[in-house]
Write a protein that binds this DNA or RNA. Structure first.
Lengths: 231, 231
DNA sequence: TCTCATAATTAGTATAGACTAACTAGTTCT
DNA sequence: AGAACTAGTTAGTCTATACTAATTATGAGA
């Protein structure tokens, strides 16, 4: 029998940059990123995270409080934002210029973001007209490493009566993304919160300007991150 | 003292696919690819090549005759052609759609070819109109893994009167290579066969467009592999 | 306060690449 | 044929990632 071409089930290997990205996301609400959460996000075992955490804090990219968690240093934050810029520019480019749809673009960008040069990213950004938001509505960090800080509220938590702009959809799940798209719930859409049923019930919203109502169950409403529209 | 961010001088890591590509090129004239030539092409030490050669022949991608060299199996050839397709499509896409110039595109493609999906390559190929040749005139293998065989003829065997492009110099000998270079006989040069003397005598050629004549003895003329230029 | 469940860490190993130093096979020259 | 040079291989390490199994720290409930 012919030996296998390669191990059919190799452990997937995440890079330093992947760790920094998820630490950025997990600690964006100001706290520490926990080992087990990092492990879950990267689909890797907790000991693998402990090992990487040690290397990363030795090189000054994160700070580690044992048994507590981990936060980015300013250096680590810079590196994370650089990767996030790459990822979001790639997603936009692939959707706008190569016909990818939003649901499938993530995995491609995830691989490419490690291989492209800064030069190529900036060429893509130019071809896109220096965009500020990616297809999911997330802000794209600048080449200098600044990112727009927007306070976003989950639809599930928004007060009845407020007017909102849908800014980002907090999932990569293709089926949910497709459903949201069918419902007209794509980033940029304006809506008002009409009603919320008690006991963690669904939220009813009205799309602006059409006024069409939508009823969104609690689970999905927690994925829709919105920005309150001022006067 | 702050520890270094990472080893400032890490060994560069070539992948299986890089090895297959250079083996493809080195053995394209039907012979074996030598360990030291592979090492030189990949800028890696000879023992590294020996190690990779062992793995590659265990998995059936190459055949190894110790102290002789290495050849691709049909499986290895398929894998090599897949990478060559990726590389050439990428180079073409980057030059045509993102303003790269032909000199700088190689390194970018070299990194991307390992990260892109087949799907993305086919989208790029569509955007380019399913091209058959890259800007050097090298044929792009099809997605199915076929490549137009450019038949190379040794200058010593070319018919008088034909117009040729010098494609490959079939020796590693430094003195001969230097001599060829002095004579202006480097890959890419165009020439016509003016005359051949009988009894395995020398071939006289005229360089195009200068028209300068060169007389090439039989031994050397057998090292100069040329492609016939069609009408 | 003590115990226990859970989360995190350490210990020990694997894999795929790299390297240098040392050894061997093949070739060429006298 | 034998010596000497060259190319190739083997042996032994290194690095960065991963894993499982075993251990330890923390915090919550009795």
């Amino acid at each position: 029998m012919q030996p296998a071409l390669r191990d059919p089930n190799p452990p997937l290997t995440r890079s330093v940059e992947d760790y920094l990205k998820v630490i950025y996301h997990l600690s964006s609400q100001g706290g520490f990123a926990a080992t087990s959460d990092i492990a879950a996000m990267l689909d890797v075992s907790p000991p693998s995270v402990s090992g990487m955490v040690k290397r990363l804090s030795e090189t000054g990219l994160i700070e580690h409080v044992p048994y507590r968690g981990v936060q980015l240093t300013s250096q680590g934050r810079r590196a994370a934002l650089r990767m996030i810029r790459r990822h979001r520019i790639l997603e936009l480019y692939l959707t706008q210029h190569l016909g990818y749809d939003w649901g499938s673009v993530h995995a491609e960008a995830e691989r490419l973001e490690h291989a492209v040069s800064d030069d190529l990213i900036e060429r893509m950004a130019s071809a896109l007209g220096q965009p500020q938001y990616d297809p999911h509505g997330d802000p794209i960090p600048t080449a200098a490493g600044d990112i727009e800080e927007t306070e976003l509220v989950a639809l599930a938590d928004a007060r009845v009566g407020t007017k909102l702009e849908l800014r980002q959809v907090g999932t990569q799940d293709a089926a949910r993304l497709r459903y949201f798209a069918e419902q007209g719930l794509t980033p940029g859409v304006l809506l008002t919160v009409s009603e919320r049923q008690p006991f963690n019930g669904p939220t009813t919203i009205a799309l602006v300007p059409s006024g069409e109502p939508r009823v969104v169950g609690r689970e999905l409403a927690q994925l829709l991150w919105c920005q309150e529209i001022g006067a």
